[in-house]
């Protein structure tokens, strides 16, 4: 893991935007039979769609505007001989599912079972952006943090210790400037490492848990797991149930996601086009 971020931090030839990224083949929308599924999450205005376009060679509209990407966009790329399917989720501030965007993003992370979740952060607004990263990591620890807009951060006089952040979070952190295509190679190799299980990601727990919380979650998670053996993250569902999340309660009641039976890839709910 630490090898990853030091590579990312190295400047010079490897980060030159003029140099084509070795081993990367942009596949556009041709994403059938990918080896890995990568979800791309992030707040609005973090350059998430720019990252998506840079990796896939597509021209998904990059708008600095909440609600731009109401439907997910999919694209593909090939890196180091593996085919990756990249799913661009709507930009959201949280995963509490208070809006359709958040619901789409959350459902995909939970039930789309991505191999890697890339969280794009705005380096100039790290504190607020980390909220989303932490929420994503509650659902899946197989995450890569893409610290984007590093150029703007520098202009604002910020210095960000990405190695320390990576240590604290327990997942790879890659500084990038997606507009100038800097740092994408390091991002790709971090994604590859996490997807192949080569980078160890630490599971995180809430720092301060109320008394009786752990027992309650363990008990509920056991029930959830028994009822829906295919569910990827029973613990997270248990926490949401404890929280009284209406959406999750409803989903459990109706079994609407179909994770109790053989429905292999539930994907995303259909949206109006």
């Amino acid at each position: 893991m630490s090898a990853r971020s030091s590579e990312a931090a190295s400047a010079g030839c490897a980060d030159c935007p003029a140099r084509p990224i070795a081993q990367l083949e942009r596949l556009g929308i041709h994403v059938e039979d990918g080896d890995y599924v990568v979800a791309l999450a992030g707040n609005p205005n973090t350059g998430k769609s720019t990252v998506f376009n840079a990796l896939t060679g597509l021209r998904q509209h990059t708008g600095n505007w909440p609600g731009k990407t109401v439907t997910r966009a999919e694209g593909g790329f090939q890196y180091a001989g593996k085919r990756f399917k990249l799913v661009d989720l709507p930009g959201t501030y949280s995963l509490l599912a208070t809006s359709p965007d958040e619901e789409v993003a959350r459902d995909f992370l939970l039930f789309g079972q991505p191999d890697v979740a890339v969280v794009v952060l705005d380096a100039t607004r790290l504190e607020r952006n980390l909220n989303l990263a932490l929420q994503v990591m509650e659902i899946t620890p197989r995450a890569v943090v893409c610290l984007n807009l590093m150029d703007e951060a520098r202009r604002h006089g910020l210095a960000i210790d990405d190695r320390r952040l990576a240590r604290d979070l327990g997942v790879p952190v890659v500084p990038t400037e997606a507009r100038a295509r800097r740092g994408l190679e390091a991002l790709l190799s971090a994604i590859h490492d996490v997807a192949a299980g080569r980078a160890a990601c630490r599971e995180r727990r809430l720092p301060s848990e109320p008394p009786g919380f752990k027992e309650a979650v363990d008990h509920l998670a056991g029930l959830v797991q028994r009822a829906y053996p295919r569910l990827p993250n029973a613990r997270w569902v248990a926490v949401r149930l404890l929280d009284g999340d209406e959406r999750i309660i409803q989903a459990v009641r109706t079994g609407e996601w179909g994770f109790s039976d053989a429905a292999a890839s539930p994907g995303l709910p259909p949206l109006a086009t």
Binding site: N131, G157, L165, L206, S208
Partner: peptide
């Protein structure tokens, strides 16, 4: 509980951001 959950996320973000960000330049 809900507020505590959200608060925990927020304070954790603040703590992490505080550790990672420095302001060397004015």
């Amino acid at each position: 509980f809900h507020d505590r959950l959200v608060e925990a996320v927020y304070s954790e973000s603040a703590r992490l951001a505080d550790r990672a960000v420095a302001w060397p330049g004015r």
